[in-house]
Every structure is written in C-alpha cells, then in structure tokens.
Design a protein around this nucleic acid. Structure first.
Lengths: 242, 242
DNA sequence: GCAAAAGTGTTAGGGCTACACCCATGC
DNA sequence: GCATGGGTGTAGCCCTAACACTTTTGC
C-alpha cells in the first residue's frame, strides 16, 4: 500500500531500506492460583530465554520473524506455538514498535497480546528455555519488552470494562463467580458479587445454560460465551485470519 | 526485539524475508464548512493520486517507505509532509496492516491517523496530485485504504467520548460552541449546548481564559487546551517522537 | 425592541453502589 | 443445624437528558 506514492518527493520507490527487519511478538496472559492467600488468582505470562546477543541470557517475549507468505496475526500465532507450544483463545494486535534505538539492529516489532484458557494452561508442556512469571514483579526483560508488557496489561485492564474479554481466560462453561474472580484478578480489587452478576447479565455477552456446577455449596449455574458477539468489538475491522 | 528467539524451532535467524517491505501511511482528518446547510461542518481528508501500478490513477492515503534511520511516527509525519505539505496537530498510531493479499507485492503498512487544525487547513498549498474529499461518500481508494479510513473514523468517533481529542481540530483559542460543533460534526448528531458545556467543564481538558470572542451576538468566552493532560491518554506508553 | 447565541437552573429517570436478605447445598 | 457461596431485593446517590429560563450582544 501507498508504495511509491506519486506526490512523494524523495520516495525510495525501489522499496524500504533492506536493513529494517520485521518481527512479530506476543504478550500472552494466563491465570494461575496465587500462592499468597490474599488473592485467588494471579496473572502470569511465559517468556523465552535468549541464547544469543543482543541481550543474551535475558528473558524476552516469544516471537520471531515475519514470513512473506503469512499475515501478521498468523505469524504471531505461529511463532508463539513454535517457541512455547501454546494456542491462545484470544489474539489482538497491540501496537507496532519501531523506535530506532530499541535494538542494536533496526527491528520493527508488531506485537500482539493474547489470552490463554485455564484448561490450555494445564496442557502446556514444560519446554526448555520457557519460563512462566507473575506479571506483577516482572522486570528486566530484553529490549523494550518491560514497557510492552505494561502497555499490554493496561489494555487488558481497560478492555475488561466494556467487553467480554475476561471470558478468554475461562473454559467453555463457567460460573459467574469464575468470571468475577477473573475480573478481580485483573483489576486487583474485590467486586460486589450481586452487582457484578447484574452487570454481566444485562449484557448479551454470556448465555445461561441449564447445567449447574455441583461443589461444596449451593450449585452454581453455568454460562457460556455468546458466540454471536465475540469477546471484543473491533469496529469495522475484519478479524485477521490466523 | 525477539529477533532469533532461543526456543524458536525454525527461526530464520538471519532476518526476515527480504521481499517484505514496510510502508507508513496516514489518515488525516480535517473539518471544512459543509455546502449543505443541514450541517455546519464536514470531515474531509487529503488523498494522493497514484502514478504507477498497482492501482495507477486511483487515490491513496499519503505515505511512503520507512527509512532505517527514523522511527515509525517520524516516518508518518515526514511522508505526510512530503506528499501533502501538511503538519497535523495530533498523531496516533492506528494499526499495522499486513495481510498477504493486500497488494501485489508483500507490503506491511503501519498506519497512523492524525488531526489537522482549522488554521492549518487554510494554509495548505494546492499541490499537484493531492485532492480533498469528504469522508462521507469516500470509496474506491487504492489497496485496502477504504477499510482503513472507515476504521480510523470509527476510532475518532469512539475517542471523542473519553478524551479531549476534538480539540485537535481547533486553533489555540476556541469557544465552547466551536468545540461542540466539532463533536456534532464527528458524531453526526446535534448535542444539547447546556449539557455539553457542563460535561466538558467538569473535566480538566480545557482551561478558561479571560478573553472573549465578539461577534454578532453575546460574546463567548475563549478556552484553550490543557497542556498538562494532552489530547488523549495512551496509558503507560511513551509518546513517540516525531 | 427583537433575534440569536451564551450561559444557568431544574427536574425526572437510569444506572451504579452498598448492603440486607433469602436459598440451596455439603457436612 | 451451620457454614458457605449462590442469588434477589432495595434504598441512596450521582450522572445524564431534556428543556425552561436568564443574560448579553448586534442591528
């Protein structure tokens, strides 16, 4: 697109400078039971250890180079699967980072952020060079990845309010308490169960089933996500194919 | 970043495929007085005529190729100035478009969207191959630019609610009626002057001056944008340097 | 004075918050 | 029965929309 625009005065019409390389990375969020009993869940994410310079030995976001034959979102899911073996439930583009000084060589990174279902986390294989950390005290990542993770977390927290994005953490069937606990974990504050129930029921983001989860107390009704709506509204933008 | 990640199984560690080129384009919105008296203002944007294939003769978003020595936002403002001579008041990254089939050659476009002050529009030179169109009935642009424009418009409309972004259309000093008319033009619906006044006054996005605009009626107090806040909140992300 | 825009006041309704209260289960 | 989470009811508060009303100018 817009390659070699007519009115461009300089316009390197032969193409972009060949030294610029295009990477695709992904910030993947998942939940795991918190050790500390003050909160039930904490947000964790997998990072990959770098085995060469620059930033050898440091932890970095999973990712890789974009191939000419694949779209951006496809590259994100592919490189994520290759480096971590994970298949997220929700993927969305976060931002394109392209400051000159962010690496020793010139790299533009299109970063995606993703959510992992609780059941997908359990299935993950323990891979060499992949480690899971709580997002809370996560610093010292390679390149500008610290900043990227904070921005992704901010987007996640904002998106909770006006979308059903929290369901991306949950399996197909879930209770309203499950959903509320996800919100509480992401927002880092307790929510009133009664009001939370009414708020999500007033939207059409979930549909009730006639199944119940029996446990140690009164059985809770199970819900599933409303496939009509999807987890988030992206406006007129077509969803990218993975 | 994330170049040649350790755990990558394939990992073209030498770099991305050289056939992929990286373009930067900008959707610039401005206001001009509407011909039809039903509305006072209409949203317009400049497009550039293509003089070579693909899509020769069609209108396209202003843009160009990213250079190795400049950041993404800097490339956006540079190519915008080169193709249209314009210098926007507000610039924000919109999205990175990278579907394989969006052009005959493989091009990834990082698209920005921008707002032009009313006074900057007046100063614009009439350039060869640059034309201004109302966004309303704007179709038939080159590549996937139709879709991109619609998405940018959607972002602009959404952002009006929770930010002072509308001030990006206005000169340094403006009345509350000016600001309201911008909102009305973007949202395409009339707003109650009384309620609008209270809403924007309750935020700290504008600061009142002691100057007034004298005209055909009661003088209106002039306001300016609150530089402390900026026009929009981008969370933990550093503003890109242009 | 009159028209028209600037600016203030007021009221009804909806949504949100806090919290009291009942329901159904395991033990 | 009792503890615990599931689920409903409700009153106060704030924000908003609608619209009546006053103020200040040009002509």
């Amino acid at each position: 697109m817009t390659q070699s625009n007519a009115a461009s005065t300089h316009g390197a019409a032969t193409g972009s400078d060949s030294e610029i390389r295009l990477a695709v990375s992904t910030v993947i969020f998942a939940l795991r039971r918190a050790k500390h009993p003050s909160k039930k869940w904490e947000i964790v994410m997998p990072v990959v250890r770098r085995t060469r310079d620059p930033h050898e030995g440091k932890w970095a976001l999973p990712g890789g180079w974009l191939r000419a034959s694949e779209g951006l979102a496809a590259a994100a899911t592919r490189t994520l699967a290759e480096t971590t073996g994970l298949h997220p439930a929700y993927v969305e583009q976060l931002y394109a980072f392209g400051a000159v000084e962010r690496s020793t060589t010139r790299v533009v990174s299109v970063v995606y952020w993703a959510l992992l279902r609780a059941d997908a986390v359990r299935e993950r294989a323990e891979l060499e060079n992949v480690e899971w950390f709580a997002v809370d005290g996560l610093w010292g990542l390679a390149f500008d990845h610290d900043e990227i993770v904070q921005y992704a977390l901010w987007r996640l927290q904002n998106k909770l309010d006006y979308s059903g994005i929290a369901q991306g953490f949950l399996p197909e069937l879930f209770t309203l308490s499950d959903l509320r606990e996800v919100h509480e974990a992401v927002l880092n504050k307790p929510l009133d169960p009664a009001n939370f129930r009414r708020q999500v029921e007033s939207t059409d983001e979930i549909v009730s089933t006639n199944e119940f989860r029996k446990g140690s107390h009164r059985p809770a009704r199970l819900y599933r996500t409303n496939i009509e709506k999807g987890l988030a509204n992206h406006g007129p933008l077509q969803p990218e194919s993975h």
